[in-house]
């Protein structure tokens, strides 16, 4: 599903963000990418979402070589990859349902289809009863669920979760991870970028460890090995 071969990314003047990174993520897999700040995790997310381009190497998502993706193609890539972040990125003046619907509206979906999809994704994340609430009226965990619902509206093949539990307490964090597991069980490839040791150890799934822009470990049923 994701194939990264010998990818390098440098920032001026002499910052090495990624150095010869190669990894392969199969369809339906759930992978945790762990590492300290500055290890290159976020750069990897940026390359996968087309926000940045690699200086060397090759990136393939599905069967799409996105190494030299055109700017005009980036929106189509992002409809295939759902992304969630630590800060949820919700619109405070829109209800939870409107936040989810917004993702469909800006991509030109018809109102009838939006009406059909929004309740179904809110049901998947367990927020069907709170659709008319505003982001400030729900907990952090629920806010992240809305972000996940929004990421799911395009039925992405891949869900990239960049530090999704960073702003949550352990209970809410575990609930979000359970939700990601549920989504993974539906067949969606989930890439979890985190430095939460407990979560990674609890998952007992594949763990890719990064340090100084390099992949230093790739364990099939790994643990968090960074101190």
């Amino acid at each position: 599903m994701i194939n990264i071969s010998n990818v390098c990314k440098y920032y001026k003047p002499d910052v090495v963000a990624l150095e010869d990174v190669s990894l392969d993520v199969k369809a339906g897999e759930m992978v945790s990418i762990v590492g300290q700040s500055g290890s290159g995790k976020t750069t990897l997310v940026k390359l996968l979402t087309g926000e940045e381009k690699a200086d060397k190497g090759q990136l393939v998502v599905g069967e799409w070589d996105i190494t030299n993706i055109n700017r005009s193609q980036v929106p189509y890539l992002r409809r295939q990859i759902g992304v969630i972040f630590q800060d949820f990125k919700l619109l405070p003046k829109k209800t939870l349902a409107e936040n989810v619907a917004f993702a469909l509206q800006v991509c030109g979906q018809k109102p009838a289809r939006i009406k059909k999809i929004v309740p179904s994704v809110l049901k998947i994340v367990g927020l069907e009863g709170k659709k008319d609430r505003y982001p400030h009226e729900v907990s952090g965990g629920e806010g992240q669920r809305v972000a996940i619902a929004r990421a799911l509206v395009h039925q992405p093949k891949i869900l990239l979760a960049d530090e999704p539990t960073g702003n949550l307490d352990s209970i809410n964090a575990n609930e979000i991870i359970d939700l990601l597991l549920k989504i993974n069980n539906f067949g969606t490839t989930v890439v979890l970028v985190t430095h939460n040791r407990e979560i990674v150890n609890r998952l007992k799934k594949r763990v890719i460890t990064m340090d100084n822009g390099r992949v230093i470990a790739d364990q099939a049923h790994g643990k968090y090995i960074i101190r």
């Binding site: 005009s72 990125k89 917004f102 800006v106 991509c107 509206v153 395009h154």
Partner: peptide, 14 residues
């Protein structure tokens, strides 16, 4: 909004 639009795949024109 722009940030979210970009995130969810809104076209440049939109």
């Amino acid at each position: 909004e722009i940030n979210i639009m970009r995130l969810v795949g809104a076209s440049t024109n939109f």
